[in-house]
Write a protein that binds this DNA or RNA. Sequence first.
RNA 1: UGCCGGGUCGUCUAAUGGUAGGACGACGGCCUCUGGAGCCGUUUGUGAGGGUUCGAAUCCUUCCCCGGCAGCCA
Length: 555
Amino acid sequence: MSTGNFIKDIINEDIRTGRWYGRVATRFPPEPNGFLHIGHAKSICLNFGIAEQYSGICNLRFDDTNPVKEEQKYIDSIKEDVSWLGFDWKDREYYASDYFGRMYECAVKLIKKGKAYVDDLSQEKIKEFRGTFTEPGKKSPFRDRGTEENLELFEKMKNGEFKDGEKVLRAKIEMTSPNLNMRDPVMYRILHTAHPRTGNEWCIYPMYDFAHCLEDSIEEITHSICTLEFEDHRPLYDWFLEELGLHHPQQIEFARLNISYNVLSKRKLGLLVSEKKVEGWDDPRMPTISGLRRRGYTAASIRDFASRIGVAKANSTVDTALLEHCIREELNKTADRVFAVLDPLKIIITNYPEDKSEYFEVENNPEDSASGTRELKFGREIYIEREDFMEAPPKKFFRLAPGRESRLKSAYYIKCNEVVKDSSGSIKELRCTYDPESRGGDTPDRRKVSGTLHWICAPGAVNITVRQYDRLFTRENPDEAEDFRLCINPDSLAVNKECMAESSLKDIEPGKRVQFFRHGYYIADIKDSKKGKPVFNRIVSLKDTWAKIVKKEGS
RNA sequence: UGCCGGGUCGUCUAAUGGUAGGACGACGGCCUCUGGAGCCGUUUGUGAGGGUUCGAAUCCUUCCCCGGCAGCCA
């Protein structure tokens, strides 16, 4: 399925010309300041996928250069997510912080070359001196300090002799460059903050532009794949490695993923978590890898999605329907069908003996002959789905109604004779008769019936909790809203605790995925589901033609 | 409007001077003991104008539109 893309074109050309002696080395370099989302999954699949395809390697590298924002718990979650997605970085688990010593040496080298200097300007002044898009920047008065003084000052920065923000180390490039990134970018800032891994060893930390190219270089990466917003930084990436005369990977930028009705930025997802709009990073509504996992998406379906969306340089927004298609396609083949009635309506089969019960054999998955069958108990009192009955059905309603006959899947045909209502007029139960001739779900005369319904035998039915998830946002592009939080879908979660299901679900293993017949695919929640007290998450609904008809006629 | 980068069906993505194709969606049909699945079919696209060429999505040119960039974030 995987199509060619412009990055593979570049790699193929490099292999043809022997640029890297046939070697391919990529890396996935997350900053551990949040949980990974499906946009990262795209990058993970790309980087690890390329390494796999070209018999190369892909490193997992934590870009931990800003201790103010980074935490060990994020490192742990990232490792879990990448691994769950099905990728193995072997022993190549690297950290930018492991290179701090070497980076420091590189900075000293640049100072000695006259290519870096310690600046005393305040943050505000640096900003002011940088100029704007249309005006060139101005040189800092500290720009021409002597090498010895710079060396001494930089060492003092390292030794903690200055306060946060008092001084920075800057690259000496060109204050009039049309590319603002080249106007003497900051290389090091002072941060008296403990680092999750290096503790208090350092109080100066390298900035992304200086650090990242060195990380890639040290690891002898060949193709450094990143997102479009770093395009303007490439000249800097190249400048540092050129000035330092180091191994020089090629930076290649591609468009980050956007999915309709979603936000895909760590900052915004973090706000949903910190403001308790969702229950956590792994809330099943979140497009995080942990959220999708908990929702019930499989790693294979996410990898399939990543291969289908392709890789390009043009900004784009992928339709949520494609992700849903990927998981439906997989689960249709692999998930066992079970009966669950989400909104029960009781039926008394008046001509069925009160003391009788029997069992019917039902196939587990018509798409998988190896999945076998199971026995389902049947009796005089059953539940069907409330929406499978209508007192005054419209033309296209093909289910049970007064005087109409429907098939109970794999059991009998039943005919509705009487509608019993309570004092408020709402339907309490149905009185039906069954046709003994239809045993197993078919009659000798092969007569047509009005639909096939799933059902649950009332005695023995188990109560289950079902969480019906819907899209988290009501707007196709929440990023375009004044505030993305204002278009959160108030109905993104509906919990139904009154559902009834066949007895086999009582002790379902948490994490197991099934199809609720005629409803959709569900997973026994890995955190909240307990044997004997199952809780299900709706992964994705079945495609629902009837719902579409209703919607069309209604509008 | 400084610099950088982009514009191909509704959406995503191929075609690298030689029949504009695929996937998802939508629509229609067939089939069906899931209004599911499956099968078949339909629809719609090269941002605009010039030029080069036997032939242009592709090369040249002018224009239009969209995105990114002014953190001591990554």
